[in-house]
Design a protein around this nucleic acid. Structure first.
Length: 400
DNA sequence: ATAGATGATTTCCC
DNA sequence: GGGAAATCATCTAT
């Protein structure tokens, strides 16, 4: 630590012993021997004088605050130059040490808080702390979603997520900066204050150091709180954005319509190709994975309970039929998902042999939306497409 | 409040 | 890797 220099300039006589560290080994007043040859306190002759000296100093110290600024300044200076000052200072310091007044709150160098380390690591992993933007957040997102079914499609949600994350990041950094600035400001302020006060109060450099350490500890506990709440915010953000189940929304009516139209018009082979999925996704404003999910769910649910879906099937069959009659003149619109399976897809509901129609269907509806996965389809979908015992009045009205 | 519908996820299989 | 099946979690209509 530096020597304790008064903030204001030293007086001309400062060589007399203003510097506190000039007396590192001072123990007690009676061990002080003044260089000018005056006797110490033990002298009976001067004992009275010395007591008066000390009483004088104490009196001045006690009343120093009552005086005007200039007066006080002058008094302080006078006190600092007083021949008994260093001795008194060291004695008071020593007493203070002994009574443990200055030792409070000094659990000395505790090891790094494990919780704080955890928080730091997490913030680093989430891309909130650490190197400036770029990899961090994106990496965290992709790591979190890679297990799920959505990777490139949901870039919309991801950008939203990233935006929110960077918001958190910004807030975190500004707050952190604020705290750091406040901490250093406060520290220098306290240090200056203590140094200044050390001219009138027994404040040793060690004590100042300890005080600084205490301040830093307090501020770092505030920082821990900041980190903790930031972590919480990130966790909430993650659970809200990345747990898709949580924010599940039903598709719009129009989207369901489009999907159902495709499904029932391709009932004999409801496996949209990648291109078809893309097209459907675009039409429905959903992702390709969502289209895949929808078809997966639909297939399985339809198969499980065909009778339940009969009405729906008829409805869409009707719809596509209407569309077909309207387009009568121009038989095949290349992109048409229209009446393609109208008479081919629905019939399986009746327990018909789907294979029966396949030939015709393939030749006529090999449009780009049609799935090429026939061989497999024949094995899974169509085999099971005929329910063990479909309830009676099936939609035979569709077949002709 | 509840049952059923529905979109998403998980596990298993090929 | 895509699909089937089971399951979960939420939405919606009652």
């Amino acid at each position: 630590m530096l020597q304790q220099q008064p903030i204001t300039g030293n007086g001309p006589n400062s060589g007399r012993g203003l510097a506190l560290n000039a007396h590192p080994g001072m123990h007690a007043l009676n061990s002080v021997h003044r260089p000018d040859g005056d006797s110490g306190l033990e002298g009976t002759e001067n004992g009275h004088d010395n007591r008066r000296d000390i009483g004088d100093i104490l009196q001045q110290i006690m009343t120093i605050t009552d005086q005007s600024l200039d007066e006080a300044q002058a008094k302080k200076h006078a006190l600092n130059c007083h021949r008994m000052k260093p001795a008194l200072f060291s004695v008071l310091c020593e007493i203070k040490e002994k009574t443990g007044l200055s030792m409070r709150n000094t659990q000395e160098e505790e090891p790094p808080d494990p919780q704080l380390v955890r928080l730091d690591n997490m913030l680093l992993a989430e891309g909130v702390a650490g190197p400036e933007k770029g990899g961090g957040a994106a990496a965290a997102v992709s790591a979190a979603t890679s297990s799920g079914g959505m990777s490139p499609d949901s870039s919309l949600e991801h950008s939203d997520y990233k935006q929110k994350l960077s918001q958190i990041r910004t807030i975190y950094h500004t707050e952190l900066e604020k705290y750091e600035q406040a901490c250093s400001e406060f520290t220098t302020h306290v240090m200056n204050l203590l140094r200044e006060q050390s001219r009138t109060r027994p404040v040793s450099p060690r004590e100042i150091e300890r005080m600084v350490a205490i301040i830093h500890r307090k501020f770092s506990s505030i920082q821990t709180q900041l980190k903790q709440s930031t972590c919480e915010a990130v966790m909430i953000l993650r659970s809200r954005f990345l747990d898709a189940r949580r924010k599940r929304r039903n598709f719009s009516k129009q989207a369901t319509e489009v999907l159902n139209e495709y499904f029932y018009s391709h009932l004999s082979n409801p496996y949209p190709s990648e291109e078809a999925k893309e097209e459907l996704a675009k039409q429905c404003s959903i992702t390709i994975s969502q289209v895949s999910n929808w078809f997966g769910n639909k297939r399985i649910r339809y198969k499980k309970n065909i009778s339940k879906f009969q009405e729906e099937a008829n409805l869409y069959a009707m719809k596509t039929a209407m569309g077909a009659t309207q387009r009568e003149g121009s038989p095949q619109t290349p992109n048409s998902t229209g009446s393609a399976d109208l008479f081919l897809g629905v019939p399986p509901v009746n327990g018909e042999q789907p294979g029966y129609h396949m030939g015709a269907q393939d030749s006529r509806y090999s449009d780009r939306l049609y799935s090429p996965r026939e061989s497999r389809t024949n094995g899974t979908w169509q085999d099971q497409n005929t329910p063990p015992s479909p309830p009676g009045s099936e939609g035979s009205d569709n077949s002709d």
